[in-house]
Design a protein around this nucleic acid. Sequence first.
DNA 1: AATAACACGTGAGGC
DNA 2: TGCCTCACGTGTTAT
Lengths: 162, 162
Amino acid sequence: MAAATRSPSHAQDHILAERKRREKLSQRFIALSSIVPGLKKMDKASVLGDAIKYVKHLQEKIKQLEEQTKKRTVESVVLVKRYHLPADDDSNSSSNDDDLPEIEARASERDVMIRIHCEKQPGVLAKVLTEVESLHLSIVNSSVMPFGNSTLDITIVAQVTN
Amino acid sequence: MAAATRSPSHAQDHILAERKRREKLSQRFIALSSIVPGLKKMDKASVLGDAIKYVKHLQEKIKQLEEQTKKRTVESVVLVKRYHLPADDDSNSSSNDDDLPEIEARASERDVMIRIHCEKQPGVLAKVLTEVESLHLSIVNSSVMPFGNSTLDITIVAQVTN
DNA sequence: AATAACACGTGAGGC
DNA sequence: TGCCTCACGTGTTAT
């Protein structure tokens, strides 16, 4: 319609409010540009554009990192689960050693020693012990040692049950 | 000064250019809001604000993930074969048909892990611990497990002292 | 009615 | 000088 803003005092309010709004936007633009690294142009369009690229880059990177760590833990769990006591000799002679979880087993008479070097994760000891006990083995001794920040070294001695 | 924009054709160009600029900005705002998850309010200030929070969040997450994966790298694994324990009268060149390592050492950051699989004999643990401590290492944890009738499995975690 | 958000045209200043 | 970017005041709309 024709005349929307009538009173001059209200008009001033409007101007002031709009000024405040612009101020807020400007501050956010500055804040955004300050956390986006490698900004060449500082104009608004470039800040937005580079921020968009940067966010996509960060998302991709996180995706990769999470995949990487997930693969590692999954691998270790799978290996632990799949591991069976050496019924046959074939186990490992020329195995390519991916440096992650290592399992070593020795037998002497009725004693069996199992040593596992793996990533620290909740429930791994219980899993291993359960697995071992399900293999006609009675656990005689066990030790868990933290090593570094994220690694566990588990040593178990068990005896074959009749 | 008084008259800045003189020609009306140039004035129209100005209007058009400014329109195009705003259009570009709007598109970027939409693009940004589309890659920032969990947006409640869609107004420009909120989009910017949430984008800022989100970027900071992503940066923090990446920092954590990178730290995590970095800590996981074991720097070195040294296998020492046929290592003789000190003060050993080796009259019989022994029957070590075991090809598994008798002594294994690995390091991660400041931590060092040493594992020894050897014959049970009095004082062997003390000897080993003394030996380790003489190498700028402070023992953090140790475990000795009997295995079979005459074998010991010793695991030690120590930290490098400055 | 009051508030908030937006797009617009316009003048000013920086290369 | 043109081209670009910005901030401003304003009208309009939706809540």
